[in-house]
């Protein structure tokens, strides 16, 4: 494990904790994309099927996988719960969440069928999950750009999530040079994902770090 990987994983962890804390402490779901959160459940469930094949890697690896599956499910349950407790806020959230996810799902499936390490169910689902993860934040970014404003904690959530994938890139350089290991699918999808975030990072830098509110173009 190198520092980039550790800090990458930590920022991924932080992003999820920030989101859960946002929902629980502010008692609001305003500005959160249900679709993006639903996609993450699908991503973790399809990626970590290897938990069932008992291909044990390490304690850390298993715990993190279980945490990502559990926490993504928990977030969806929290959002779903507001359907009863806060029907108006729930309806507003769903109404604002207009991104067509079927294109992301279809596109990821096509890419997974074209690019995978083996034409088997597990390998295709793994590939599907990395392609889908590279674009899963789009409904959330789309929502943000439409409303033009967002709660600062939602912004920090997206920032931490983007930071996680960005840190994985130097991690792969490290692993290539130090360990001689390389994974073309992970690297390509990781770069796609970081590019998706790059516009957001730019606006984050301009607006949040130099003061003022946030509004995506």
């Amino acid at each position: 494990m190198n520092l980039f990987r550790i800090f990458g994983d930590l920022s991924h962890l932080a992003s999820i904790l920030i989101l859960i804390r946002t929902i629980q402490t502010t008692d609001t779901i305003d500005g959160i994309s249900f679709k993006t959160q639903g996609l993450y459940v699908l991503i973790f469930l399809t990626r970590y099927l290897d938990l069932l094949t008992f291909s044990y890697v390490s304690f850390y690896n298993t715990i993190m996988k279980l945490f990502f599956i559990g926490s993504s499910l928990y977030i969806v349950i929290l959002l779903q719960r507001s359907r009863k407790t806060k029907p108006i806020a729930y309806k507003e959230m769903i109404m604002a969440d207009t991104f067509k996810v079927q294109y992301l799902l279809g596109g990821s499936l096509v890419m997974a069928l074209l690019f995978n390490y083996k034409f088997s169910l597990l390998e295709i689902l793994w590939s599907f999950s990395v392609w889908l993860e590279s674009v899963a934040i789009l409904p959330q970014l789309f929502m943000l750009s439409k409303s033009g404003k967002a709660k600062s904690l939602t912004i920090h959530y997206i920032f931490a999530l983007g930071l996680y994938r960005t840190l994985y890139i130097p991690n792969w350089f490290w692993r290539y040079w130090v360990e001689g290991k390389f994974d073309k699918l992970a690297v390509v999808t990781g770069i796609v994902q970081t590019l998706v975030y790059s516009d957001f990072f730019y606006v984050y830098y301009k607006k949040v770090l130099t003061g003022g509110g946030l509004g995506l173009p």
């Binding site: 291909s55 690896n61 990502f68 992970a186």
Partner: peptide
Amino acid sequence: ETNIIKHDEL
């Protein structure tokens, strides 16, 4: 051959 990066990363 198992792809080590796919195998041990998250």
